[in-house]
Design a protein around this nucleic acid. Structure first.
Lengths: 199, 199
DNA sequence: ACAAAGTAAGTAAATGTTTATTTACTTACA
DNA sequence: TGTAAGTAAATAAACATTTACTTACTTTGT
């Protein structure tokens, strides 16, 4: 039996993410992807059932999974609230800075009904994504350190600005006057931390 | 000369937004739109040069323009920082609650390169979008009331969580346990306000 | 007061292209 | 040599956009 070429498997994923980042999800086609990855369209269908399957797996595994792994690495329950949140902000920035195409598809996850639905279903079937963060925040509430909001609200308050700032970072990456420097990012992080503290 | 039917003009816009919200920008086609709006494909081309032109105008005029008008109405420079930010949060929530399709396309504006680019160019040509908010925040900085961040950073800290929360609101609208109630929203708003205050 | 001419708004159907996916074949290795 | 991995080319459907025509109203000459 002919062994599978892992380079081709990887090429499909990374070229797909690249094309999505450059031209948008709405302009990705299987034939364009095959040509750009230097493979036959059929090869994609050996690994994915159809286009939706490819997009969903790309989003769940390459984007959400890889991101979760990157930011939860080194996150411990014995960290203070400040340390934990700063850890996630820093790791997120570092991760996406070197994985811009993953960031682009992550953003599409917030708008595309296909990806959105896939995320909801995955969350139900496989247990909460970002469970370590959920757990970390729950502990801080129990300690009386931070305000007791539902998890989704805490997530919005602590991390929605971060996504916006990383987006801003990329938009200014080839221009003068980058507003998102590491110092600004840390100051912004301290701002969201301070807001959520119980006074 | 036969007068134009304004209902059809309006139908194109509202049906397009609806289809995008339901099936995603990546699944919108001109023929589908024509059929859903009960018009001929040609009619769309009488009002828009091509598909990109339609999407860009929909995004800039119907989504960003209408939203800006909705939230800046009643925003005055003599409001306190707290009043101003709460005003924008409340108006935003009210506006999007009754314009979910506009919210869906607004989200695509953050991911789609086409819409993103259109927004940048519009901002350069026509002057800053959300200028009243820019001006309001600048005044608060001058007064020494809030931390002096670049505008984009202030926007991220004050309003990115709001977008996330409205999204969350829609995702729970037909389910039990809605986490985004008006009270929670106001408490979250107070949290972002508190974070940005100069201490 | 009124019909008929002029015209932009509108339509149905066609255009050529691109799409997702499949068929029929070839390749490279265990 | 058997077989899964891979390919090039084909298929049918859907796509953006256009063509050739009709409609419905305004204008104009009477």
């Amino acid at each position: 039996m002919r062994p599978k070429n892992l380079e081709k498997e990887q090429a499909i994923k990374s070229v797909a993410l690249q094309l999505i980042a450059e031209e948008g999800l709405e302009n990705l086609s299987m034939q364009k992807l095959a040509k750009a990855a230097n493979i036959s369209p059929r090869t994609i269908y050996l690994k994915y059932a159809d286009k939706d399957d490819l997009l969903i797996k790309l989003y769940i595994e390459e984007v959400l999974g890889a991101y979760e792994a990157a930011i939860t690495e080194g996150l411990h329950d014995n960290m203070t609230f400040e340390e934990g949140v700063k850890h996630i902000w820093m790791k997120s920035f570092e991760y996406y800075k070197t994985n811009q195409p993953a960031f682009a598809l992550m953003l599409y996850g917030k708008s595309s009904p296909l990806l959105n639905k896939a995320f909801q279903e995955m969350n139900i079937k496989e247990g909460q994504y970002f469970a370590p963060i959920h757990q970390f925040l729950e502990l801080q509430v129990k300690k009386g350190k931070i305000k007791d909001f539902p998890f989704t609200v805490q997530r919005a308050l602590l991390f929605a600005p971060l996504t916006d700032l990383i987006n801003e970072y990329f938009e200014h990456i080839n221009r003068s006057g980058q507003p998102v420097t590491p110092q600004i990012l840390m100051a912004a992080c301290e701002t969201v931390i301070d807001g959520l503290l119980k006074k």
